[in-house]
Simulated assay, not measured.
Amino acid sequence: MALARKSLSSGTLVGAYQLAEVIGKGGFSLIYLAHDLDSGAEVVIKEYMPKKLARRQRDGRVVPMAAEQALALHHGRRLFFQEVQALASLQHPSIVRVLDFFLANDTGYLVMPNERGRNLSAYLQQRRGGLSTTFLLDVFVPVLDALALMHAHAMVHLDVKPGNIHLRHGNQPLLLDLGAVHPLNRERARGSQVVTAGYSPVEQYFSRAELGPWTDVYAVGATIRACMERTTPPPALERNKQDTLVPACEALAGRYPRFLLEAVDWAMQMEAARRPHDASALLAWLRPQLERHRAELAEAGGDSRLVSAEAH
């Protein structure tokens, strides 16, 4: 008998790891806290188990929900393995490290370090938005730099949102959810099952639409705006029918530097061709603006309104 999305029990051995507890569930995976039996280190393990395709047998094996889904599950598992292997080649302080990847229970397991810190989504709810300029720059400049590296290697994340940004000590960001990453040279990059209302641009809703680095750029802009405005932006499908979203340069004028509001509005353009082509293009525009901003602050002796309370 198969059990829908049942997690593995605490104490279960998977490869060289002993599972401790479930710490998260996503559309494509279950996430466990575990211990490396060789080193004794605490790690995080992501088990590939797509919610719409997979069930678990009592012996722990992951099987298709129905016979006609077997091919899709097998294909997804193979791509998951290949894509994580590709991503493991990227070295960046804001991209989660891949420690190990292996097959067991007829599915794939991704092993990552357990990074202490807090999730941006939970922190945003706690603070009720309105995060400072310094905080936003500390977090999103490194996130854009990490995405620029991915884009340079023909990869797109496709699920940038507050819930996929982890904040370590000093608000150093870590981009999570590698399972959503797609190499652009595969057919899977056209259309996607990964859609997060408010953060996914309109092209992600359509199976034949072309996705690319510009898709991640929209999501970054939407995430920054959510941090500013205390609420998730309206879904792109709603904006596509009737765009009632007031530009950030108008809605948030005076609360944040003009250049940062312009960056958000540029990133959140509905038409992909009107956005920065990739993260590096947005960064190239932002960097001289940041230098001028910092020089102005230094000349004025600093501005207490822009000092991040979150950094202390």
Score class of each variant (00 low, 15 high):
Asp36Glu: 10
Ser29Glu: 09
Asn171Trp: 12
Leu158Thr: 08
Glu291Met: 13
Ala70Lys: 12
Gln204Trp: 07
Met112Glu: 15
Gly191Trp: 05
Glu47Ala: 10
Lys25Gln: 14
Glu229Met: 04
Arg255Met: 09
Met65Glu: 13
His92Met: 06
Arg287Gln: 14
Val14Phe: 05
Arg188Asp: 03
Ala2Val: 14
Val220Arg: 02
Ala273Arg: 15
Glu310Ile: 07
Asp59Arg: 06
Gln91Asp: 09
Asn164Lys: 10
Glu68His: 15
Ala279Tyr: 11
Gly15Thr: 09
Pro235Cys: 11
Val143Glu: 06
Ala189Thr: 04
Val194Lys: 01
Thr223Tyr: 05
Pro213Thr: 07
Thr12Leu: 09
Glu271Ser: 15
Ala146Asp: 10
Val139Thr: 08
Thr196Gln: 05
Ala253Lys: 09
Arg292Asn: 15
His74Ser: 14
Arg305Cys: 00
Ile165Thr: 13
His157Gly: 05
Ser121Leu: 15
Ala70Trp: 05
Pro113Glu: 10
Gly301Val: 03
Gly11Val: 02
Ala284Arg: 13
Glu310Met: 10
Ala279Ser: 15
His151Tyr: 08
Asp59Lys: 01
Ser121Phe: 13
Gly60Arg: 09
His75Gly: 01
Met49Glu: 01
Leu124Gln: 08
Asp106Thr: 11
Arg186Val: 05
Ser9Asn: 13
Ala54Ile: 11
Leu71Glu: 14
Ala41Glu: 14
Arg188Gly: 02
His75Lys: 10
Phe135Pro: 00
Glu229Ile: 00
Ile165Glu: 11
Ala122Ile: 14
Phe135Tyr: 12
Lys6Gly: 12
Leu79Trp: 04
Pro93Cys: 07
Phe259Leu: 06
Pro235Arg: 08
Val217Gly: 04
Arg127Asp: 07
Ser39Ala: 12
Ala311Leu: 14
Gln85His: 10
Val156Tyr: 02
Arg190Met: 06
Pro234Asp: 12
Arg208Trp: 10
Lys25Phe: 02
Arg168Ser: 08
Arg255Val: 00
Leu245Gly: 01
Pro235Ala: 11
Gln85Asp: 07
Ala251Trp: 00
Asn185Phe: 01
Leu124Pro: 08
Met268Cys: 13
Asn171Ser: 14
Ser132Gly: 12
Val98His: 02
Ala104Gly: 09
Leu282Glu: 03
Leu30Lys: 10
Val307Gly: 00
Asp100Pro: 02
Glu203Leu: 10
Ala154Glu: 15
Met270Leu: 15
Leu120Cys: 12
Leu306Tyr: 14
Ala263Glu: 01
Ser10His: 08
Gly26Ser: 12
Asn171Asp: 15
Gln82Pro: 02
Thr215Asp: 09
Leu260Ile: 04
Ala122Cys: 00
Arg77Tyr: 00
Arg118Thr: 14
Thr215Cys: 05
Gln57Thr: 07
Phe101Cys: 07
Asn105Asp: 13
Cys227Pro: 04
Val63Phe: 01
Arg127Pro: 07
Leu261Phe: 01
Arg287Val: 15
Arg55Tyr: 08
Leu261Trp: 01
Thr196Gly: 01
Trp214Cys: 13
Thr107Trp: 06
Pro142Ser: 13
Ala154Phe: 08
Gly11Tyr: 11
Thr231Pro: 00
